[in-house]
């Protein structure tokens, strides 16, 4: 277990090792659900919630099931099952007990099962052998960082809605180039925290 303070991991995963801007995870939903600020906020919230819960559960499963049984080669299957099951349970529970929140976040939940940021954070946690508090702060930071990035992109895209653009750039190409510029700006933070 590397001796890095969980708080450093938390801030680093938001700013210097942002899930989207430096690890390229969760791009599919990032590109397709970023045309409106409000929906982007909903998705960001849902991703953060699911990310923290799955990472904590996967940490427990890895530590107390996979390692003692020495079935590391099955870890992908186990992790993906945990994620799919948790999302399903979360959706049913939300529908039953928190209908307001479900109306807001419900449509995003199925999208999240195939969001690679979720599985990616779990795999990073395993590869870097984080402890419990480190994993918790890492997943929280990654979720918030993802949320920040999608909100920034959505805000910029809303401003650009009425702008005159060269032919063919509107759509994914524009999002890529905006994200590239954002990633360049975030390079300015590099060196403040290092975790990789």
């Amino acid at each position: 277990m590397p001796q890095i303070s969980p708080f450093i991991i938390f801030f680093a995963s938001i700013i210097t090792s942002n899930m989207i801007l430096s690890n390229f995870l969760g791009m599919c939903s990032y590109l397709s659900v970023s045309s409106e600020y409000k929906t982007a906020t909903g998705l960001g919230m849902a991703v953060t919630l699911v990310l923290v819960m799955t990472t904590v559960i996967n940490w427990v499963v890895y530590k107390f099931v996979i390692l003692p049984l020495e079935i590391e080669y099955l870890q992908y299957i186990i992790f993906i099952m945990v994620i799919a099951a948790l999302v399903q349970i979360l959706e049913m529970g939300m529908d039953r007990y928190m209908p307001d929140l479900h109306a807001k976040l419900g449509i995003f939940l199925p999208l999240i099962t195939v969001n690679c940021a979720i599985l990616g954070v779990t795999l990073f946690m395993v590869i870097r052998s984080y402890g419990f508090s480190q994993s918790l702060m890492f997943s929280l930071g990654s979720g918030l960082g993802w949320w920040l990035a999608i909100n920034m992109l959505a805000a910029i895209r809303e401003k650009l809605k009425n702008a005159k653009l060269p032919p063919g750039i509107s759509g994914p190409a524009l999002s890529f180039i905006i994200t590239g510029i954002m990633a360049m700006a975030f390079i300015g933070f590099s060196g403040i925290f290092t975790i990789q």
Binding site: L21, G168, I169, A173, S175, F176, I177, G180, I181, A183
Partner: peptide, 26 residues
Amino acid sequence: TIMIMPPAAFFIIGSLIWVLSARAQK
């Protein structure tokens, strides 16, 4: 050095998509 850092990946793929979709539109 920028080419091996993350932003370049976004720029290059973004430009490729741009060129292709502009051609498809034309």
